[in-house]
Design a protein around this nucleic acid. Structure first.
Lengths: 185, 185
DNA sequence: CGTTGCTATGCAACGAGGTGCATAGCAAGA
DNA sequence: TCTTGCTATGCACCTCGTTGCATAGCAACG
């Protein structure tokens, strides 16, 4: 389990409430680690009772108060320990690949619209990544010491961009293959 | 849940026992859909009681008997229904991406060996894919009607190859980035 | 004043998925 | 004969993750 570690990293980058974390998991972080708000609240509770994070009640005006979490010493130690221990590549679940192989026993051409939907989702995400890259990393690096946090966020984003480009190219390959079969069933 | 659908596709490609399915999930199918043998046995039980698969006791000599499963009519219908219904892109879990962003708050250079381990795993898998592609799809297609099952297996394999090549290139990018920081802490 | 909608947190229940363990047949080698 | 190892199936337990629901503050609009 590494949700706690993903939360630690996110809180180190910027402290925040469970709600704010949930929204981060819907955008940047969620693109390589998903979590719902219930999971986040539950894990935050456990991390708090384990002393990994500190909580601070933050009164707000115009909206409900929130609990702002930040990483405590033991949390930093736990993250460090995890970083130094080898982890296996994660298990993969590509239902589209299952569908494509399954289409051989149904109507291959009927999958075309589904593949096009996925292709659209990947081009949307690619555009989103490229916009983020231009916004956050478009300028040449400022003089001075290397900003590790910024550089590492950038290389992860480049991975996301490479992944989306690969997927779009492959889905075009899939579409060309599916088009090679007679339409209808 | 799509484990049942992955099992249906695998059984349509070739009937087999739970044990044989578990081994397929360790190699070809497991590269885009993982499952342990316990999960497979449990789901096969449910699929059998739902009438999705038929069972046949196969006596064997020199080894324990086995139960050979094959897809029944309702199973085929369930697969067809799933193929025709849209599914969202799967949630992703890339712990390496979390580690890379986390390394900014620890020792970035200490991650190099871990990244190299992952790079090695991806080159191994790429070699495995390329060997399979040469073995199963190296010959030009025979004359006659297009073999949908073969073509679709091939395009899925090309996706795996593209994925591994993308990952290797990105991990080289990550290694170059990590090397840019001062060693030690 | 009621509805809608966003912020913010949480519980209860269920199903998916993984780990560890148990059983059993049979072969091969020490 | 004892151990090791592969084939083959399965149970018990526990955690992870999702869905649905509930609560509450406050703003904006009709």
């Amino acid at each position: 389990m590494a949700l706690e570690h993903a939360i630690l990293v996110s809180l180190l980058e910027k402290p925040g409430s469970g709600y704010e974390l949930a929204r981060r998991f819907e955008r940047s972080i969620g693109y390589f680690w998903t979590a719902t708000h219930q999971q986040i609240y539950r894990v935050l509770k456990r991390m708090e009772s384990d002393g990994w994070v500190d909580v601070r009640e933050v009164p707000q005006y115009g909206r409900p108060d929130k609990k702002e979490y930040s990483v405590a010493g033991p949390g930093r130690d736990a993250l460090s320990a995890w970083l130094h221990e080898p982890t296996e590549p994660d298990s993969v679940r590509h239902d589209l690949a299952v569908k494509i192989r399954g289409a051989a026993f149904d109507d291959p051409a009927a999958l075309i619209s589904e593949v096009e939907r996925h292709r659209q989702a990947h081009t949307d995400r690619l555009d989103h990544y490229l916009a983020g890259a231009a916004r956050d990393f478009g300028d040449p690096p400022a003089d001075g010491p290397i900003d590790a946090e910024r550089e590492l966020q950038h290389v992860v984003l480049r991975g996301g961009i490479a992944y989306e480009r690969m997927m779009i190219a492959w889905l075009d390959d899939v579409l060309a293959t599916l088009s090679g079969f007679a339409p209808g069933h």
